[in-house]
Simulated assay, not measured.
Amino acid sequence: MPTAALRAGLISYTDTGGTKPTIVLTGGLAVGGTLWDPVVEVLRHDFRCVVPTLPLGAHVEPMAGGADLSLPGLVEILDDFLELLDLHGVTFVECDTGMGQLLAASACERITSMVLCSCETADNYPPGLPGRTVALAAKLPGGVNLAMQQLRVRALRRAPFTFGWMAKRPIPDAVMDEWLRPLQTQRAIRRDLTKYLRSVKASRQALREATSRLRSFDRPVLVVWASEDRVMPVGTGRHLAGLFPQARMVEIDDSYTLLPADQPEQLTAEIRSFVNVSASTL
């Protein structure tokens, strides 16, 4: 897997390559890029798919000691990543985090459209029971380590306060093992995640400030939400869609937050259709 040397540190990523229209896909806390594998496997035939693993716990290279790992800091890392790879005309696709809203508020010139899938908002941060649980753990000395070591017990991964309300269907153990291994084995990776989790106040404020500027984002946006989501309530998705001047919302049944895991075929079809229509209007 290639790595991008950024100011904050090394970011690993996958890239299907080519000169086709580019889609950049990102995930959330303790979720590796393989979340997107079923989606990328289909989209790669028509699009260049780039999947960076941002420093949210599933990354394998610790960030520089002084790196800003708050939500705004992650957006800067992503912006540096897009610049290093010289990506333009990007459709940014995210699931779980609120980075897309900060990117929209900053009017990032490299991004021409967005797909926001069941994600954090200013009114839901940290999101739901899993978000509040891990944020609380980060306040305690050794709390993140304790929380992650407990997830070696695979049955606990289906608890509502861990991944049980993130994915409606169990994520394969081998995949979860890969996502969690860096946090369970590397103190520096736990340090990175703890820095992010302890930035709640600054990150929430950044989301609130971004919300007031979303109406100025005049590019196409697709908001895709799991209708049964227990972590990101569907009402927050409808509200978010209403803040963009060119947004359309799609609700997907029989899924929780991690739509790429629960409903990859339907999500892939929605992304493909959206990108094709968006490209035809540019």
Results as ranks from 00 to 15, higher is better:
S118L: 12
N145L: 14
G164E: 05
V115N: 10
L151H: 01
A174G: 10
T162A: 00
G143T: 13
A159P: 00
F161D: 05
E120I: 05
G143I: 09
M176G: 09
A137R: 09
R152C: 02
G164A: 13
P172I: 03
V144D: 01
F161I: 12
Y125K: 10
L146I: 15
V115F: 10
T112H: 11
G143R: 10
A122Q: 09
P126C: 11
C119L: 12
L116Y: 04
P170L: 10
F161Y: 14
S113A: 15
R132T: 08
E120W: 04
D173F: 01
C119R: 05
P170V: 06
T121P: 12
A147S: 14
V115A: 10
F161T: 02
T112K: 05
P141E: 05
P126K: 08
G128M: 08
R158K: 13
P170Y: 03
T121H: 09
T162W: 02
R158N: 11
G143K: 15
R132W: 03
M148V: 07
P141V: 09
E178S: 07
G143A: 15
Y125E: 15
V153H: 05
N145H: 15
K168E: 09
T121S: 14
A135Q: 10
V175R: 01
P160M: 02
G164K: 02
D173H: 04
R152Y: 00
L136H: 11
P141K: 12
K168A: 10
M148D: 03
C119P: 03
R169L: 14
I171L: 02
A167L: 09
W165V: 00
P130N: 06
A147G: 05
C119H: 09
G128N: 05
R169C: 13
N124C: 14
T162F: 01
E120S: 12
N145G: 15
A159T: 00
G128Y: 01
P127V: 09
V144M: 13
A138N: 14
F161M: 07
N124G: 11
F163S: 03
V144E: 04
W179I: 04
L136Q: 15
R152G: 01
R157P: 09
V134I: 15
W179K: 01
A174Y: 08
V134T: 06
T121E: 12
R132C: 06
E178R: 01
